[in-house]
Design a protein around this nucleic acid. Structure first.
Lengths: 233, 233
DNA sequence: TTCTTATGTTAACATTGTTCACTTTGAAAA
DNA sequence: TTTTCAAAGTGAACAATGTTAACATAAGAA
């Protein structure tokens, strides 16, 4: 009874003035929102009501609404990297398998977080991306990681030698293209998603792999897929 | 002097009430606008001022703002088809060359009309697209044309036999992916665009082409590109 | 000429992001 | 302990947005 009353008292106190950790609360709620709806539909009113504050409270923590969304993008890229890049940091798997699995995680991320993916890879906040990428340029996240993986593949003799930058772009374009088409409602591939990804990756692989090597893969499916492309070692 | 006065009179008369062809004028101005800026920035105020009417005049011609944009999308797809599909309607070119050239027109369209492309292939108005596609399903525009071309290629023995739908998706995803990445500011490829497209198409081609055929192309570049993929006829 | 309808106008509305003057709170300084 | 003050909340007001409603006019049919 006493505890109950105390809780009630605290809640009432915290609802007005000095919320405690309102900034993080805004971010959390915003992420919660875009898990379900497009970021365009997120309003200050929604944020205010969800936190039990007023519409203008947010301005004590962010310069404006866009600043909150920019924060979402920054953290979103961290989440993205965390979810998608693990296989690029492994040494135990053949490189081709790393490509296969990373690509799969990429599309999976987009499918599971369509609104976040659209926010991260859409046009509207492209400027914030440039800042993020320029900061992290030397590390191994995002496109940089892909390009390095391609160069590694070329050194190992697995991938075609010419034009690593162009090759990386082609790979990214495939993954971005299929992800976008799916989450933007152009393709209803829920039923046949596995087949679509297999076809996509196989096509890509045959195109980027050096025609001088035969690839042995740790993943049972992959080596099989590569058999039609037999060439002498 | 008389003429001048008459013009003045007519203009004044036409500015108030009975514009003449205001609906088409709205559409024209909207297209003019998205040639330069994103459709998100188009407001009723802009349309009103450009036509010399009031902000609510548009409601006599469209149900609401979205209805105008839906009209833009419908016409936009017509323009898109007109610009992109001509090579798919030709019989004088080898099929592979048709793919090559159509793909090039596709990316070119996106680069020249980034805001329109984003409007046509973005998520926001996906619903209107479904209507358009369902109406035009049986004809040879858009994805249907691509799928038919793939099937033709399979019949001719040029393309891999399995999974025409998946193969068509892969091709579309490549073109959509590279287009989106470029126009949304992820890649600065203005300088090396030609090389990027060549690499993209080459990669794609090697992946989709049947490994039982050697392809002869009318375009000098293409047959050369295919030489690394030599196999017996 | 008169009536009607299409097509324009202006005024008002709710909702949006944003700013400003204010109030409250909690903690450091006295 | 009391005072002070910056941090963090409030509500009122603003302009811009899309939208609606009541009203005005032009043009053609009756």
């Amino acid at each position: 009874m006493f505890t109950l009353y105390l809780c009630y008292n605290i809640d009432m106190t915290k609802q007005h003035y000095h919320h405690g950790n309102l900034k993080e609360e805004f971010i959390r709620i915003a992420f919660e929102f875009i898990a379900k709806e497009d970021v365009e539909k997120l309003t200050l009113k929604i944020l205010a009501e969800a936190t039990g504050t007023s519409r203008s409270a947010i301005y004590k923590h962010f310069k404006n609404k866009d600043a909150l969304i920019e924060t979402l993008i920054e953290r979103g890229f961290d989440i993205f990297d965390e979810k998608v890049s693990p296989y690029f940091k492994t040494n135990t798997l053949p490189l081709i398998d790393q490509f296969y699995l990373t690509g799969k995680l990429y599309v999976e991320f987009a499918r599971k977080n369509p609104n976040l993916y659209r926010l991260l890879f859409g046009k509207k906040y492209a400027y914030i991306r440039e800042e993020i990428l320029s900061i992290k340029e030397e590390d191994c996240s995002g496109f940089g990681a892909l390009k390095k993986a391609v160069e590694r593949g070329q050194k190992e003799g697995i991938l075609k030698k010419e034009k690593s930058y162009e090759l990386a772009i082609v790979i990214w374009a495939s993954m971005h293209g299929i992800s976008s088409l799916i989450i933007d409602g152009f393709l209803d591939v829920e039923e046949i998603y596995e087949e679509v990804y297999e076809t996509l990756f196989e096509t890509l692989l045959v195109g980027i792999v050096s025609n001088k090597v035969k690839i042995f893969s740790a993943l049972p499916g992959l080596s099989k897929r590569l058999q039609p492309h037999k060439t002498k070692v």
